[in-house]
Design a protein around this nucleic acid. Structure first.
Lengths: 350, 350
DNA sequence: ATTAGCACTCGTTAAAGGAGAGTGCTAACA
DNA sequence: TGTTAGCACTCTCCTTTAACGAGTGCTAAT
């Protein structure tokens, strides 16, 4: 057989691309005859058969059973994504559609995120998972205690990303509005321009001197601060288009479908999975590349969004490894950027 | 045949109950022999056959095809729910499990709602839909403008239910902190103890005299107030246990399953469906009783939750018409009450 | 190196043939 | 008059069988 034949020469790449292109839309194992007929490369099906056997031996293709066509392996998809596929730019209609949806203003960050998940899923036809803004590295812009009545006050926290959090806390006896005002100023002075993480670590030391009286009250403030932030985890995972999965025949098996929806219900897991370092741009995880067993039959395309150059969160779509990577990647890229522009502008103004 | 035989006598009710009890767990059409054997009523299968034919003619049972057993009709389920089924009280273990989960405090109302949807779905094995607190009839307890920096302020709104809403609004040139403070007081004075609805109707008239200067600013405040409230609709629909539907053989059909999940994705629709007048207690909608075509193959059990005697929202479960009504109703009832107690206490304190 | 030809594999589909569960009806019975 | 045993009949579901066809690998010819 000679070593020569096992090179990944141009023809092999061409054939691999053709097979994957075909399989992505058909979901059926691809045979040599199909390739020979559909793509006119001037070689016979027998030749293609030989090449396919080589590609299988090299790990780029798999055979469901002896007398079936070939199916791409994860390694095959990886090669396809990195070197073979043609990135499809969004159509002008699609780009305009997206731009228009982000045209109208709203101050409700959550609404924007929800809308993003819907757009993402409707354009890609996969399931979208969008994470709300990460709070941990965000800086505090303003912190204040607002008196409501004799017994309680509202703790308000505003970050430099324009996100607001608040919590009602009760006031112990014998604290008048003026004292509350002084505490409020003190907190603001102490924590302004600090990150949320800092609060968790520092306060006990720095505040200690203020804490001699009303120790409990201070504790409840710190408590409210940290817990109101920590909530960020599971509750800020937004899904869109979960039912899209039914479009794909691999999930017409009830067992598979159930697995998928069970997965989606584990919001904490999704959060852990998709929260990533600030690496911007679009990234693709194919099947077994995923560290989690539960996800090794899926592919995930992830992008980040930011405001004013600071990464805030991630958007992802999740679907079968037989995914329209080309379309998916360009949509993710475009929406990630559009959303970032939108948020940057929003925060700059508001 | 005689008119007599068509009465709903005790024996017919007994048989109907037996059939529905059986069908609810088996999901298979129930035959006369099954009833005769399993439930010892001292009559033969032939007699039961006659009664079943009567029950079918009266509309309580249906026959999928000539040589199959009987299946309850919606009318049959209705009779079952109203008169036949034995309400199963929660086991002590279950009651304790629920109580324990509501034992620990949190100020995050949203977390409580999310947890409720999880508990509901895990105990009933159906899909839970919980609506967040309705805002429209809620009274305003406190309203305030908190200055953040020169260019913007935070509008904070606290309701008598302890719910907080806020929005960042920008301040026009030439408004100093003192003036802002006066406006804040004015707003508070004007809107305190009013409902949100009132704001939408009244402000233009009442505020007009204040609005001579800074008309735009006032408009943006009113805008922020009303929109931050209106969000309430779709974004406050919480789902739990959607994947539970796969436990039931009627949804092993992919078409049916897809329909179900498509339904769940229409949050606005679910909101419209489940938001109801304050009628408290548990209510059941069976199949075609539902006004919406899309839901006529499902049954829905709904309860309300409240705080301090004021109804806030609804909890529901949705599942096949072949539902364990008895279990479902008692769980809904118990959780509705427990949640109400919890919230009542929470708001009384905080 | 390429390709035509061919035997072989294996999954898919359709038809055919029970098996089984259930019914309605009739006739006998208390 | 209500109840029940018996029976013919219906219809779905499951299994078996056979034929089909898409696809492969190998061999031999080009």
């Amino acid at each position: 057989m000679g070593v020569k034949s096992m090179e990944l020469n141009k023809r092999k790449l061409q054939i691999l691309q053709a097979i994957i292109d075909d399989y992505i839309v058909s979901a059926e194992p691809v045979g040599s005859r199909t390739i020979a007929k559909k793509y006119d490369m001037g070689i016979s099906s027998a030749t293609i058969r030989n090449e396919m056997a080589d590609l299988e031996e090299m790990g780029y293709l798999e055979q469901p059973h002896t007398s079936a066509g070939r199916v791409p392996s994860d390694k095959g998809y990886r090669l396809y994504v990195d070197r073979l596929m043609k990135i499809k730019k969004l159509s002008i209609t699609e780009a305009k559609y997206i731009k228009d949806l982000y045209a109208k203003k709203t101050n409700q960050l959550e609404q924007v995120i929800i809308q993003t998940s819907k757009i993402l899923s409707s354009l890609t036809n996969y399931t979208a998972v969008v994470l709300g803004p990460k709070m941990d590295r965000v800086l505090i812009k303003h912190i204040q205690l607002v008196p409501i009545d004799k017994r309680c006050a509202l703790l308000v926290l505003i970050t430099n990303n324009g996100i607001t959090k608040d919590a009602v806390i009760s006031i112990p006896e014998g604290i008048d509005e003026d004292y509350l005002y002084r505490i409020s100023n003190m907190l603001n002075h102490l924590f302004k321009d600090k990150s949320i993480e800092d609060i968790k670590l520092e306060p006990l030391l720095k505040i200690q001197k203020y804490m001699l009286q009303n120790r409990e009250f201070f504790n409840s403030i710190i408590d409210a601060l940290t817990t109101s932030i920590d909530v960020g985890d599971a509750s800020e995972v937004y899904l869109g288009g979960a039912a899209n999965i039914f479009n794909y025949p691999e999930y017409h098996d009830i067992i598979k479908a159930k697995e998928f929806f069970d997965l989606l219900e584990q919001k904490e897991f999704l959060y852990k999975l998709l929260v990533r370092s600030e690496k911007s741009g679009v990234s693709v995880t194919i099947g077994q590349e995923n560290q989690y067993k539960e996800l090794q039959e899926y592919s995930i395309v992830t992008a980040t969004y930011s405001a004013g150059g600071r990464t805030l969160g991630t958007l992802s779509i999740i679907g079968p490894t037989r995914m329209e990577y080309s379309k998916a990647i360009s949509v993710m890229d475009f929406i990630g950027k559009t959303l970032s522009d939108y948020l940057t502008q929003l925060f700059a103004e508001g």
